[in-house]
Computed example of a mutant assay.
Amino acid sequence: MKPLFIVHLRIRLITFEKKSIEAYGSFHLEVQELNGQENRVYVRWKQTSIHKGEVDGFAPTGKTEVEITSAVYQEESKIEEY
């Protein structure tokens, strides 16, 4: 059985990916850094896509967008899988 943290993280990522596909179609996602220790995981990724759908009220531009994002995920107990 997977830890509850992993299930919640995957649900958040699926929701994020669904919204991204609606706005940008296919996109390239590159994990640039991934570090984990005990109950925390740090991840930085680069997403390259083309603005094809409305985003926050902005009409599609057809331009390439590069977004570099990072997050720290933390759980009360030790993370067993990521």
Score class of each variant (00 low, 15 high):
residue 30 E to Q: 11
residue 17 E to D: 15
residue 40 R to G: 00
residue 69 T to N: 11
residue 51 H to S: 06
residue 32 Q to M: 15
residue 26 S to R: 10
residue 75 E to I: 05
residue 75 E to W: 10
residue 34 L to S: 12
residue 37 Q to W: 07
residue 7 V to K: 13
residue 27 F to Y: 15
residue 40 R to N: 11
residue 16 F to P: 02
residue 46 K to P: 03
residue 26 S to Y: 10
residue 44 R to W: 05
residue 12 R to M: 12
residue 39 N to R: 12
residue 48 T to A: 04
residue 16 F to K: 14
residue 9 L to M: 06
residue 63 K to P: 00
residue 59 A to Q: 07
residue 13 L to M: 08
residue 75 E to L: 08
residue 27 F to A: 08
residue 18 K to S: 13
residue 12 R to N: 11
residue 14 I to T: 05
residue 57 G to C: 05
residue 32 Q to C: 11
residue 57 G to M: 06
residue 7 V to R: 08
residue 52 K to W: 03
residue 36 G to H: 05
residue 19 K to T: 01
residue 56 D to H: 09
residue 71 A to E: 13
residue 16 F to N: 13
residue 36 G to N: 04
residue 71 A to V: 13
residue 44 R to Y: 09
residue 66 V to H: 02
residue 21 I to N: 09
residue 27 F to G: 03
residue 61 T to V: 08
residue 52 K to C: 10
residue 11 I to V: 08
residue 26 S to E: 15
residue 61 T to L: 06
residue 68 I to C: 05
residue 36 G to Y: 01
residue 14 I to P: 00
residue 75 E to N: 14
residue 60 P to Y: 02
residue 54 E to I: 03
residue 72 V to I: 15
residue 50 I to K: 15
residue 33 E to G: 02
residue 70 S to W: 03
residue 16 F to Y: 13
residue 72 V to T: 15
residue 15 T to M: 12
residue 65 E to C: 06
residue 69 T to S: 12
residue 60 P to E: 07
residue 34 L to K: 09
residue 49 S to C: 15
residue 41 V to D: 00
residue 62 G to K: 06
residue 38 E to M: 06
residue 42 Y to N: 01
residue 41 V to E: 05
residue 50 I to G: 03
